[in-house]
Amino acid sequence: MSLISTDKVTYEYIIRDKNGSVEGINRAVDEVDMTVEQGEFIAILGSNGSGKSTLAKHFNALLLPLEGTVYIDGYDTADSDHLWDIRQTTGMVFQNPDNQIIGTLVEEDVAFGPENMGVKSKEIKERVKNSLESVGMEKYRYKSPSKLSGGQKQRIAIAGVLAMKPKCIVLDESTAMLDPAGRKEVLNAVMELNRKDKITVILITHFMEEVINADKVYVIDKGKICMSGPPRLIFSNAEILKEIGLSVPYATLLSNELRKRGIPLRDGIVSNEELAGNICQLLQTI
């Protein structure tokens, strides 16, 4: 059984004018079929307004599909009896680090999830300690979150999800508001969790550089999956990515062009350093 499977999931937003009458319908998610297995690292790539965040909110029953079904660990998300099981299985980390901190101390914030689940105090303490350790934030346990950097706040949010012992973490553009250093911090933390603890990760982003380590990438545009496969395959189709409004790194474009001219560069180059390294390697072999 797959951890997550969606079957023709469709979701629409109704656009209303000032008087409240229907002006139009925006189909944010359009017949999406996807399956995610336990332990996978999945990336969902899409530009602004592609519907990727709307899709993400279905994985945790924050939104219910208008048509189709979403199964999380065997439970149908429309089944309200298992709502809390579903939310515990797939934890979510959101975009704005400030708007998801509930506690006035780091410890209190991480404990929020398990407290809601009714876990015993002694075990909550244990979980808080372990989750903070897995994201490397144990030093900040008794600090106030308002003093932390964006990347650190997001790691606290990840720890807060981890404390609920989820099978899967969904990062809904969690790196979008961070600086490059903070982004790296958060990505390293989730990759570590995926590798060490075999936690399934679904990374939703519009930064192509972030999906390079994923097992599988889904590219979503206008609510539909327009491409899926391993990152290298996705990167070699830079033209399509550009067309749907994703900013493709120059290194990728350049290496694709060079490859077309017969220079045997490897696939999936995203950074300037990588490109330079690869060219140097080639020069040495000549």
Binding site: L62, Q100, I102, F112, E115, N116, I124
Partner: peptide, 17 residues
């Protein structure tokens, strides 16, 4: 939304750290 995603559903059966 973030609170709901972390299973918040009122005081009822909540425990404390």
């Amino acid at each position: 939304v973030a609170m709901e995603a972390r299973c918040y559903h009122g005081g009822g059966k909540r425990t404390g750290i």
